[in-house]
Design a protein around this nucleic acid. Structure first.
Lengths: 97, 97
DNA sequence: TTGACATGCAGTATTTGTACTGCATATTTA
DNA sequence: TAAATATGCAGTACAAATACTGCATGTCAA
């Protein structure tokens, strides 16, 4: 795993919305873009972002390799892919823990 | 630890130079800004950044709580502080590993 | 006390990130 | 086929990140 790939993984983690998306996919795998847009908000009263904004966050997660994508007709199915996260943690984080 | 603090920690980790600084401090604690500017570059032939740029990266690490600062006269001594990193990993990463 | 040294602050230019609106494309289903 | 649905693409506006130059401040030593 290159330094740039590690950077992509940590950048992907460095946003509340993207961590929320990952947590939602972990709890309920195989969600669509629309599912993730209306996912249950935390009690803090957070407003939901627009579909296109959520889509951009998904792009960031996908670029980091953290999503496994599959298509069913017109619907895109997202699953969490833990591989790159584990690699990045092993390579760049474990020495500091 | 708030979501915003977790975001700060992962943002701090999301840059090659800042990870290099942390690694340098881990291997040799108590370095000054100048020490970290001339720290041994990896064989990849990376050019060293300006002093002010390195200082900005140190600010980002300090905002994330990852540095312990002490002063000796005019020199600022930097040490790696693992606490916030461990907290962020526990809260935001462990569920995904 | 003066010069050298370590750091900080201000400002700038460029790029990237974040969130949005609007339109286009593709696939179901009625 | 036509409407509804799911997604993608283009473009915009604003904020933040990145790297820099130049100047200022404070501290040590000659």
């Amino acid at each position: 795993m290159t330094e740039d790939q590690i950077t992509l993984v940590f950048k992907a983690l460095a946003h509340t919305e993207r961590r929320r998306i990952l947590a939602s996919l972990l709890q309920k795998p195989g969600q669509t873009l629309f599912d993730l847009c209306v996912a249950p908000d935390q009690p803090g009263g957070a407003r939901h972002l627009s579909r296109q904004t959520v889509s951009q966050h998904l792009d960031a997660l996908e670029r980091a390799g953290l999503l496994e994508i599959s298509w069913q007709g017109r619907t895109k199915i997202h699953r969490f892919e833990p591989g790159p996260l584990r690699e990045a943690v092993q390579q760049a984080l474990v020495p500091f823990l």
